Computed example of a mutant assay.
Amino acid sequence: MTRIRSLAFCILFASFSLTSCFKAHIITDKDVQKHYAAKVNKPKNYIIKNDTLSLGLSTMGADSLPMLLLIHGAPGSRWGYMNMLDDEELSKRFHIVSVDRLGYGHSRMKKIGPVTSIETHARALLPILALNHSKSKITILGRSYGAPIAATLVSMFPDQFKELIMVSPVIDPEKEKFYWFSKWGRMSFIQWFLPGAFNAATAEKFSHAEELKKILPVWGQLNLPTTVIQGGNDWISDPANIDFAKKHIKSRQAQFIYLNNAGHMITYTHLKMIKEMLLKKALFNDHVQMDAGKQLSIVHSK
């Protein structure tokens, strides 16, 4: 009986610890309803379904405007970009589309468990491209684990995209971070107590380094304006990821922005800067330095 009680305590403690560690990254349907209850402007919510998958997405702005496609990290959902969906300036200039990745929110691949393949995640987003009814190419922004998926999608369909922005990217296979609670998340009896998004994130975590190795050719294929933004105080994405980006992204249209004091959620803490980039109000010319490879190397502090 004592052993059973001890095991039960361990399960509850591990489940509570894992849930607490990532609670800030999860926005529930109730949270969304409460947030928009008193707002006049609300996003349009859709579920795209075909024979193999369903994709949950939310949009703001007229669909005749140039598309801004937002790809979230792990764990997370399309609502991780709620502040960008709500931004009136952005929705007047863009058809903002924020999508749940496979295994998160309302997106699933039928008859398949957690999806760990970066290529599969990217291909699953193909139906979204058909929603671009403007005469302009798509601007795509991927954060954290969403960054390599965004880059892979661009490499698959380069003619569809105008610009790639990667924020707090997890792209270096040698810099994958693991935490004291990571191994607990792989235990089936603990997973039973956890939300599906946590289990999907765990599956991705332990496959991510190998998946990043598979897409190494992608970085040399990027021939469009590409921006990489990394925070110096990011405890999720190793700041050295920006060095990987500088080494492997060969495009002369690439720029690298290192925010000394920023953490992981740069799309929240530095929304003004992100907007300036998207709206082209500022090009950070006062921070530009040319490196030996003639790429733009930008250092910008909050």
Score class of each variant (00 low, 15 high):
residue 278 L to Q: 05
residue 199 N to E: 04
residue 161 F to E: 04
residue 148 P to A: 01
residue 30 K to T: 12
residue 136 S to Q: 15
residue 161 F to S: 08
residue 275 K to E: 03
residue 183 K to C: 01
residue 29 D to F: 08
residue 236 I to G: 03
residue 222 L to P: 10
residue 89 E to P: 03
residue 221 Q to S: 13
residue 51 D to F: 03
residue 154 V to R: 02
residue 44 K to V: 15
residue 130 A to W: 09
residue 77 S to C: 11
residue 14 A to G: 12
residue 240 A to P: 02
residue 16 F to L: 14
residue 199 N to L: 02
residue 214 K to R: 13
residue 221 Q to H: 07
residue 286 D to C: 02
residue 169 P to Y: 06
residue 218 V to E: 00
residue 251 S to V: 11
residue 283 L to Q: 06
residue 283 L to I: 03
residue 98 S to Y: 11
residue 264 H to P: 08
residue 69 L to K: 11
residue 249 I to S: 07
residue 46 Y to F: 15
residue 162 K to M: 05
residue 53 L to I: 09
residue 76 G to F: 10
residue 111 K to G: 04
residue 206 F to Q: 02
residue 220 G to V: 13
residue 118 I to H: 05
residue 143 R to L: 05
residue 218 V to I: 15
residue 44 K to F: 08
residue 96 I to E: 03
residue 48 I to V: 15
residue 229 I to M: 11
residue 195 P to A: 11
residue 65 L to Q: 14
residue 210 E to A: 10
residue 241 N to K: 09
residue 125 L to W: 14
residue 201 A to G: 02
residue 137 K to V: 09
residue 257 I to G: 01
residue 255 Q to R: 14
residue 108 R to V: 14
residue 287 H to K: 09
residue 164 L to G: 01
residue 162 K to W: 01
residue 97 V to S: 11
residue 251 S to G: 13
residue 267 T to F: 00
residue 17 S to E: 07
residue 102 L to P: 08
residue 293 G to D: 04
residue 250 K to P: 00
residue 18 L to Y: 04
residue 113 G to N: 13
residue 203 A to F: 04
residue 289 Q to P: 00
residue 203 A to G: 03
residue 207 S to E: 01
residue 226 T to Y: 10
residue 131 L to R: 14
residue 37 A to L: 15
residue 89 E to R: 15
residue 302 K to T: 12
residue 292 A to Y: 04
residue 223 N to Q: 13
residue 186 R to M: 07
residue 122 A to V: 10
residue 46 Y to K: 15
residue 233 N to T: 13
residue 302 K to E: 10
residue 288 V to S: 01
residue 268 Y to H: 03
residue 13 F to L: 14
residue 100 D to H: 14
residue 103 G to V: 07
residue 18 L to N: 08
residue 8 A to Y: 15
residue 206 F to Y: 07
residue 153 L to Q: 04
residue 12 L to M: 12
residue 3 R to A: 12
residue 142 G to F: 01
residue 30 K to S: 12
residue 107 S to W: 04
residue 109 M to H: 10
residue 228 V to K: 06
residue 216 L to W: 06
residue 101 R to N: 07
residue 198 F to R: 04
residue 37 A to I: 13
residue 103 G to P: 12
residue 246 K to S: 05
residue 173 P to N: 02
residue 105 G to N: 10
residue 100 D to E: 11
residue 226 T to E: 09
residue 83 N to F: 09
residue 271 L to P: 00
residue 15 S to V: 14
residue 72 H to Q: 11
residue 213 K to T: 08
residue 204 E to D: 06
residue 261 N to L: 04
residue 278 L to S: 02
residue 131 L to T: 12
residue 11 I to Y: 09
residue 228 V to R: 08
residue 161 F to W: 05
residue 279 L to G: 00
